[in-house]
Amino acid sequence: MGHQTESLDTEKIWGGGESPFGISYGKMMMWFFLISDALTFSGFLVSYGFFRHRFSDIWPVAENVFTHFPFMHGHHPLLYVALMTFILIMSSVTMVLAVEAGHRMKRKSVILWLGLTIIGGLIFVGSQAWEWYHFIHGTAEGALQMADGSIAHMFGDFTLALSDGTSIAAAEAGEYFGHSHIGHHHAHIVGITGEASVHLPQALRAMGNGLALGSEEVQQFILTGDAAKEAIMSGNIIQGANLEMNEYGVPLFADFFFFITGFHGTHVFSGVVINFVIFVNVIMNTYEKRGHYEMVEKVGLYWHFVDLVWVFVFTFFYLV
């Protein structure tokens, strides 16, 4: 690691016949690629931040969206994504150990650590697929979507009749339970019996739903009686999330989730493929013959970058 104490003469290093940055062409190009790729991710995350602040009053809290954990029932916010983060950090460690083994020309160690890196990457991509599956399918009971796309909360003692012939009954305690097998489509509400209340998101001040509301009701965001029934009838029951609707909140949240984690997942997958190509080369003695394992170092740079992006996605999507 240490070849650093040389003093640099600017005129000499930029005068030609030198690598001014003191690194090989291949590594420099990998760095330049990563600079541009990181700007793409910065653009994604900044635009996420823009819309999140613009709709800060109705943006869903990620903690309430991603609460599943394999083989465990109940509410487990953050745990699964923490596990995914751990897997990716771990595979970053095995990658840097592969690079280190390459510096010692230890082919067998490189095979071991690079192989573990590939396995870690595959587990991560699989975990992401699992999380997408749960996000797309949504909760069993679905949610009430208003005409402007926002999600409202219903409570009370009532029964909804849906256009698909099924019905949803609310428990007295407040939370309503569905049976529903809408199957990630939306269903119209064709009838409502009983007493219902609706808690509207603040964005409904916009009156984008065509509801005739008194100013008092709008101030409190809670509708009761006939106003509540009218509001509920104007909405749809939706389940799960896709690019157009999202039972957990504004559809934009789902759009950003699919784009950002999807773009990152594509990077992880490409990384696994590239790592595998290099892995085969290591096994075939390519780098022993070449006399150095610099290729492992170059794919290592890419792999750490993928980990780095996840560190930011983890913070800005799940924590903050």
Binding site: F305, V311, T315
Partner: peptide
Amino acid sequence: ILTLFKAFYIVFDYMHLGHERRNL
């Protein structure tokens, strides 16, 4: 801030940037 710490360690050590020349 904790995220930036993590990013620093990944970039400067795992990606070796801390040991590269200042101009890079």
